[in-house]
Amino acid sequence: MDEWVDILDAEGRYTGEKILKSEAHQNGLFHPTVHIWFFTSEREILLQQRAGNKKTFPLYWDASVAGHIAAGEVVLKGAVREVEEEIGLKIKANALQPVGVFKSIQQHHSGLLDCEFHHTFICLLTEPVHALQKQKEEVEALKLMPLSIWEKDLFSNSPSLSYVPHQEAYYREVINAIRKRS
Rank of each mutant, 00 (worst) to 15 (best):
E85T: 06
A141R: 15
H118Y: 06
G16N: 05
V75I: 15
R181H: 12
N157D: 14
L29Q: 10
S41M: 03
S158E: 09
T40R: 13
P58N: 10
A177V: 00
I36W: 00
R13F: 07
P159C: 00
I36V: 15
R50K: 05
P146W: 10
V74S: 08
F39S: 06
E23N: 06
I45Q: 07
V75H: 01
E44W: 03
K152W: 01
C123L: 05
T120M: 02
S22R: 01
W61K: 07
S22L: 02
K18W: 04
F38I: 07
Q26P: 00
E84N: 14
L59S: 15
L46W: 02
F155C: 00
E138M: 06
Y163R: 06
G52Y: 04
N157R: 11
E86C: 01
L132A: 10
W37K: 05
F38L: 05
E73N: 02
T33K: 15
E151Q: 08
T126E: 11
S22M: 06
A10C: 06
I175S: 01
E44N: 13
L96W: 11
A66S: 14
V164N: 06
E140T: 04
C115S: 07
K134M: 15
Y170E: 08
E42Y: 14
K152I: 03
Y60A: 15
E137Y: 10
E23F: 07
A71H: 08
K55R: 15
V83A: 09
I178F: 01
V164I: 13
R181M: 06
L20R: 14
H108N: 13
A93I: 03
T120S: 15
S64K: 08
A93E: 14
S160G: 11
L20N: 05
I69Y: 03
V65I: 11
L132I: 06
E73F: 07
A66T: 08
Q49M: 14
E85C: 03
D2A: 03
S158V: 05
A51F: 10
A66R: 12
H35G: 11
E3D: 09
W150V: 00
L147K: 09
L125K: 05
E168V: 09
D6T: 10
K152R: 13
Y60I: 03
I91P: 03
G16Q: 08
R181V: 07
R43A: 12
V65P: 00
A51Q: 08
E85Q: 12
E85P: 00
S162A: 08
E73R: 04
A51R: 09
K92D: 12
E17G: 05
T120Y: 10
I149G: 06
G28N: 04
L147D: 01
